[in-house]
């Protein structure tokens, strides 16, 4: 654990192309693709962890960073070879549908995406806090040796966690593609960068911090785009990120972790 996955955004992109292929070839709605892609994404994550990251336990942190960066290049260029470089999107029938809520107009797709995010957060919360396996995950992240000594197979915990991470990024891609364009090489790093900013903002390894960091980044970007200039949308988040790091290097909600 404590792996910063620099290929995270590329799994989002894999999810996007999965949704596009399943829609154009089989006519599947993205929400249907989601059901298939979640287990497949999990499996992909487990296999990649076993093949690559499990060999990099107890090595300097930079090694896993380089490994995932390399993985990112492989994924990007494989997608480029298969789909070409031109931007693609997916137009579903309800793509431009909206709901009026008093003075607000909300896009149906965004509401669905938000709803799924809430379900995922609730699911993760219940898993981490109320299941034995979830406690094992928390224990492993807090002290790997301690976890081993009570009988937790921490290697299998590592695989599980990476599998869940990849499954969730693939799911994010499937949910997002009806409202975005995707290209094999550019889209992934944008998401990786945002995910990185969000986790650092929240304090690395802090689930609630990540949620808070995500909300903060989104709100800063949207407010900046609406009131200052739309062209620098991605920059507002990064400026906020730099300012917060200057003032609170451990992240907004980061605890200074003591070892016991």
């Amino acid at each position: 654990m404590r792996i910063i996955n620099f290929s995270h955004g590329d799994f989002v992109v894999i999810g996007m192309y999965t949704a596009i292929v399943l829609y154009t070839q089989l006519g599947w709605d993205p929400l249907l693709s989601l059901l298939v892609a979640l287990p497949l994404g999990f499996l992909l994550g487990v296999v990649l962890e076993r093949l690559i990251l499990s060999r990099l336990v107890d090595v300097p942190e930079g090694s896993t960073l380089l490994a995932t960066l390399g993985l990112s290049l492989v994924v990007q260029n494989t997608l480029m070879l298969s789909f070409g470089a031109s931007p693609r999107s997916l137009n579903v029938a309800y793509g431009s549908a909206t709901v009026n809520l008093g003075p607000m107009t909300l896009s149906v797709i965004q509401l669905v995406a938000g709803g799924i995010v809430l379900v995922v957060i609730a699911g993760l919360y219940l898993f981490l806090n109320y299941t034995e396996r979830g406690q094992a995950v928390r224990a492993t992240s807090q002290n790997r040796l301690g976890a081993e000594l009570v009988g937790i197979n921490t290697r299998s915990v590592h695989s599980l966690v990476f599998g869940v991470g990849v499954a969730l990024s693939v799911a994010a891609g499937i949910i997002l593609i009806p409202q975005l364009f995707v290209t094999p090489v550019i889209t992934g790093p944008v998401f990786t960068l945002k995910a990185f900013v969000v986790t650092v903002l929240g304090g690395l390894g802090n689930v609630w911090g990540a949620i808070g960091g995500g909300l903060l980044l989104g709100v800063v970007e949207v407010l900046g785009a609406a009131y200052i200039s739309f062209d620098y949308r991605d920059a507002y988040g990064l400026v906020a990120f730099l300012l917060i790091l200057l003032l609170r290097p451990e992240g907004l909600f980061g605890r200074t972790v003591k070892r016991v």
Partner: peptide, 8 residues
């Protein structure tokens, strides 16, 4: 060094 789970 005990190796507890500090935040639990």
């Amino acid at each position: 060094g005990r190796q507890l789970f500090p935040n639990m």
